[in-house]
Design a protein around this nucleic acid. Structure first.
Lengths: 274, 274
DNA sequence: TGTACATCAGTGAACGCGCGTTCACTGATGTAC
DNA sequence: TGTACATCAGTGAACGCGCGTTCACTGATGTAC
């Protein structure tokens, strides 16, 4: 439907003829740069003017006429969607990198064949489940605090008159997948030792299992329920901070958030295991 | 500064002369009704058009000219503030009523002198701390689900170009005070039995104590920290649901929320005690 | 290597709509003597 | 009980600004033969 990807697709088809200039044509590269620039300027506007996104304002800032933007995005809502997807991806990467900083030894031959011993001796163990939850939690918060308007875009109140299309769903899951993985690994390793005695009702089981499948973990329903509760708290805590509910309440925001995360890892039954 | 309250104040002064028609003059009563009607129509618009509040749209719906609204609210932002305060108060009342359904026996001579035995035999005991948390939690959620746009107004992303004035703070605390009271009562009664062993750092103590004072409880820092964490989760869970993050995930929203609440009362160390 | 044609980015004007706020005004309601 | 004056609600026009989207157009870049 949209013609955005056509240039790239076409470029791929002619890639073998142009050896020097790599795959994409000049036009395609300029187009990609322009598209990125539009998104960048749009984000600047979100940050500056509050959260109303205006095509005309973006065009003005780029020294173009507003109608020119329609060469890149078929409508304002499509631009919004692009920003939302980028935000989810950016947050997802931050979360994934924080978790990836924990090395692989102790796990089975997981990733590719590159099983050579870690080059950084101080790399934390992947079996330090509580440490991983803390690291990922802090990474998510740091991202949100650094980009509060992008955070509001994806975790704030729905935008009037806009409904996110289905293709926002996979990126939206990335941060959740990272958190879910930690709990799943913990359960696989030691069964989530101090599991609470509150088991979800049988009625909730099918959907909890479905969620675990969807996030590509194999945590049991009770573990999934506790994981979702802890994740709900995590984003709730960040929303409280980013949306201003901690103003004049806590000065040491990181310290307070850190305490909450630690408290919730205890709730989850995650243990340190170095 | 604002002239809104003047009519009422003036009416009070002449209250003793008019016996039949009570205190407020006709004009004052009509004015109060109009003010209420404007707020009602404004809320309808929030619910219908998404969350952009427009004075002109409100005026249109009331069959008035837009400038007429300036007789009632000096600006759009003041109307917004009024809506926000009303929303907090409405939610506060819902929370307070849910907690008040638990009778007083077992407590010291708390409320006024009306200590006659409860007329409803099935009234739950105030010492059922877990039950109270559940009841208040469900009341808050029910309010939010019934009025999602009002919920978004007070717990959603900040409104671009608007900053809430200080007089929104006391109403904003009403729901928190109700929740805090439960934990404080529990701690006074049995010291929060299954308290976690994670104590907040000394650095957080002053602010935690300050919060407890502000909410008029005397919970210790560890109890306050756990209470705030549970409250953060509670509003996080409601936000997830109201902002659409549970779509295509859970069908039994009440059941899922209920499980989370129960799980968090265990985290809090609240016990049933009938 | 050069010409002819297709693709595409960006322009500028316009459509049709929205908004908050100010201002001088008309009439009705309330108040003081 | 009646008159004179003050208060207040609501009007209608206007100011000055914003917005998303469409459309016919000009030129430049790319492509095929």
């Amino acid at each position: 439907m949209t013609s955005d990807a056509d240039a790239n697709t076409g470029a791929d088809a002619t890639a073998d003829t142009a050896a020097d200039k790599a795959a994409p044509s000049l036009r395609a590269r300029v187009r990609a740069e322009m598209t990125a620039e539009i998104k960048r300027v749009a984000l600047d506007h979100l940050a500056a003017d509050g959260s109303a996104l205006s095509l005309r304002a973006v065009a003005r800032d780029m020294g173009m006429v507003s109608s020119a933007l329609y060469r890149y995005f078929p409508s304002r809502d499509e631009l919004l969607t692009a920003l939302i997807i980028d935000a989810y991806d950016s947050l997802g990467v931050a979360a994934e990198e924080a978790d990836a900083a924990f090395s692989d030894r102790g796990e089975g031959a997981g990733r590719a064949g590159r099983a050579e011993p870690s080059d950084r001796a101080d790399r934390a163990d992947r079996a330090d489940f509580a440490g991983r939850w803390l690291a990922v939690g802090h990474a998510i918060r740091a991202w949100a605090v650094a980009k509060p308007h992008e955070y509001a875009l994806i975790y704030g109140s729905p935008i009037p008159g806009y409904t996110a299309p289905q293709n926002t769903v996979p990126p939206a899951n990335r941060p959740m997948v990272v958190l879910a993985r930690i709990v799943a690994d913990a359960q696989a390793a030691d069964g989530l030792a101090s599991a609470a005695n509150d088991r979800p009702s049988a009625q909730l089981h099918p959907e909890l299992t479905q969620i675990a499948d969807f996030l590509n973990t194999h945590t049991d329903p009770a573990g999934t329920a506790r994981f979702l509760t802890a994740a709900t708290h995590l984003f709730g805590a960040i929303s409280f901070e980013v949306f201003g509910r901690l103003n004049n309440v806590f000065t040491d925001r990181v310290g307070w958030y850190d305490w909450q995360l630690r408290s919730m890892t205890a709730y989850l039954g995650l243990v340190h295991n170095k």
